[in-house]
Amino acid sequence: MSEETLKIPTMAELSAEGKSPEILFWVGCAGSYDDRYKAVTRAMIRILNKANINFAVLGTEESCTGDPARRAGDEFTFQMQAAMNIEVLNNYNIKNIVTACPHCFNTLKNEYPELGGNYDVIHHSQYLQKLINEGKVKFGGGEFKGKRITYHDSCYLGRANDIYEAPREVLEKLDAELVEMKRCKSKGLCCGAGGAQMFKDAEKGHKEVNIERAEEAVAARPDYVAVGCPFCMTMMGDGIKHFNKEKEIKVLDLSEFIVGAQDL
């Protein structure tokens, strides 16, 4: 696909043309600013373009959902963010939201309704599964055929929202060997970054949580660690590096597997 045809429509543009999108792709702060996670945003844009989905992004009108502020205890900052975002989303009459961040997903889906924001929110793992099931996204194993992949459950997808199967079903389409870590699904171990931990140093202890988790991932001898969360991405990436395994074990988001398999 040539880059010229790649479309990244914003809500403002669509609205000016009097159109409305099927879905809003909520990029999130990590997807917008974090160098590693921007690649996930790009992968999602490619998939959405290839599948001819009528989507839009908010661009500069998007703002932090407020999740880290709320988890850090600052309800005021959270609700200010929520009120501003809800105003934007409601003005555009948004119905469906897809996001590649489980924290944004949880906040938009579970915490905005009480503040006046009611949307149908799904995580990109669920959305990708849906596109695959509808035949809108097709791919074979490609470079992942026969490779060992282990999926690291994000707490905010898993225990927080009971989503365990969608990411695994996406990965199953890769013709790869899915291996589970000792602690997985509802017993999965946190990467250490949830609850706003991403934004401060850990308290005194004898180990970093992501090292504990990366150790377990390495023990599963995978070629790839699959994640569905920007914080997990950072923490697992750092953890794998800690064991000097970054050459043998790559940490990829679900969307990046699809893009890799499709050779987009």
């Binding site: 927080a160 946190c190 949830g194 949580v209």
Partner: peptide, 8 residues
């Protein structure tokens, strides 16, 4: 401050 709110 040490809680990751992971719900485990």
């Amino acid at each position: 401050m040490a809680c990751t709110s992971c719900n485990a």
